[in-house]
Design a protein around this nucleic acid. Structure first.
Lengths: 320, 320
DNA sequence: AACCTCCATGCACAAACGTGCAGAACGGAT
DNA sequence: ATCCGTTCTGCACGTTTGTGCATGGAGGTT
């Protein structure tokens, strides 16, 4: 974008959002047409020049958000969505709102860990630009499986994050699960891998969805050729309810003794919990069991989820 | 406002600003009419639920803002305004943008010092609501003069600040200038006055305009019956260029030996400079001399001013 | 119960806005 | 200098949004 166009956009944004002038009036001041002003404003919006935030004064009684907040001790953003909407539409809307909620949290010098999956993919498509300096996007877990190297799918997500925030992107070019734990041990000693692990250990923000074993539409992980018959059987045998970044856990939040985790490339839960800001995005009530496990494990500091799921989360909790 | 209306406003705001739905679509989801949604949204905006910020990535070369920022080492917000606009319109627009710029800086537990004058009056009329807890608005200087107690004028300003931020208001019921320095000394020992002075010493934010001796439309202070002939002569004799909260200073930022200050009720400049955030709002290029003195004195950490004045500020500086 | 006042609602109209399209302006490449 | 591809602009149209007004319902008073 040309420099004068940029400063015109800034001026227009100030006049429109801070001075309440109409586009018509702005057009006259900038000696251009109203439609140009309209375009300037939309470019100002999606280049992150204009930041719109909704701050919920949380003194509005013990509503949905308050209940969840108290129960799990985290920040909650319930996305208002009609319960009648289908999965895809709900996901889109949760993703859009999640993307815009995340924006203000991203700062310069941030190291942002990003998982992959259909939720994150949707979020990545709705990110609003924000100019930061020296930020890094680092992939949380490998994406390869028996059929593909997973590169394109996961890397699209990463790339979108990178370009939205003007950040360097660090991929993690390993499979999601190794066939043999020994291979993982070996790889973890490679310097190329250690560089990524080191970055991960310094993350200031982590963004992830959750997988749930019994979801209506099983997550990528459970359906995408990542696990074979015996793996799935082993999960069932360990009472696993879900995963975050291909690391599995039980309903009580524990993850010890789950053998599959020894071959997984995602960060151990204890490690993940070192991250200051851990943002979990969930769309679809059928993920409820995985979600509850993740929250019980204390994996998230921020939760963004649709209203229907939020409602189920508290109603079950109430019964328990 | 009823609680359900409030939560509807929140939902509507989320759907409109975060999910890009049209008001029509939102109306259907909330089972109401589109016009109600329009009204919900505007109530969400001016109750501070929706926060719109313009962040200027300051890497856009050494423009107006950058030059001033570097010269005086403070944060600058230049308000785009056509140079052809008259004083009143310019003031309105600067005030509106100032009010919205200040909003995000106000936090709970803040002690906010507020001066009075036509600039502050205009700002106070455009404040956007923001819910805070345990904030206090404290008057920086007395407003009485020989004709009136000044109560209504200044207290209107204070009251508007108070109700916008849900803050307690502490007036300063003294004249702007005492006739005799001795009276000030006496009053300053009164406990009622000391309470205010104590609050002032703990301010986290101060908001003020500047007066300029030679402004086209002289400030309230110079025209409103606050000073008599001999006072004005004494100011001229001391090379005074302007004032902040009825405390005078010279072009080089110094204020020592200005006798009128001994009778003024405003905070001494050294005291004012203790405040972490000092926001100066200026509209009208004829205040340039007062402004330059105030900036040289380092009175402000944040400056909000119209474009024409900003331009004159740098062009003169360049010549000096 | 009857009355009144206040305020939220929906309607209808006018104002403001977004966007496909065709032409203009720009910036290389030949 | 000419061509071509790209980007920007203004117009025109359809859509979306703000608001004065009349209506109706809730809550308070006599």
């Amino acid at each position: 974008m040309s420099p004068s166009r940029h400063s015109d956009a800034l001026r227009a944004a100030q006049m429109y959002y801070l001075q309440d002038l109409t586009m018509d009036a702005i057009a006259r001041e900038l000696r251009t047409s109203r439609s140009t002003v309209s375009r300037l404003l939309s470019s100002a919006r999606d280049s992150g020049l204009v930041q719109i935030q909704i701050r919920n004064p949380m003194d509005t009684g013990p509503e949905l958000e308050g209940i969840i907040r108290d129960e799990y001790n985290l920040d909650v953003h319930v996305v208002p969505v009609l319960e009648t909407l289908n999965e895809a539409e709900t996901l889109e809307r949760v993703a859009m709102q999640a993307a815009r909620t995340i924006g203000p949290l991203v700062d310069s010098n941030a190291i942002i860990g990003v998982a992959w999956g259909s939720t994150l993919s949707a979020v990545s498509r709705h990110l609003t630009r924000k100019i930061t300096h020296d930020s890094v996007i680092v992939q949380l877990n490998g994406a390869g499986n028996m059929h593909t190297t997973g590169i394109t799918y996961a890397s699209d997500i990463m790339r979108r994050f990178g370009s939205a925030y003007g950040a360097r992107v660090e991929q993690f070019p390993v499979p999601a699960f190794f066939d043999h734990a020994a291979t993982k041990t070996a790889m973890w000693n490679e310097r190329s891998v250690q560089r990524i692990l080191k970055l991960q250990s310094r993350m200031s923000i982590a963004i992830f969805g959750v997988g749930s074993v019994d979801a209506d539409y099983p997550s990528h992980v459970y359906a995408g050729g990542y696990l074979d018959e015996s793996d799935l059987k082993s999960l069932a045998g360990s009472d696993v309810v879900g995963d975050v970044a291909t690391v599995f856990f039980r309903g009580d939040g524990s993850s010890d003794g789950i053998v599959l985790n020894e071959r997984s490339t995602g960060p151990a839960l204890a490690e993940l919990k070192q991250v200051r800001r851990r943002i979990c995005v969930v769309s679809g009530a059928s993920k409820i069991n995985g979600l509850r496990g993740a929250l019980t494990a204390g994996l998230a500091t921020d939760l963004i989820l649709d209203e229907a799921t939020a409602r189920r989360l508290v109603s079950f909790d109430g019964a328990a």
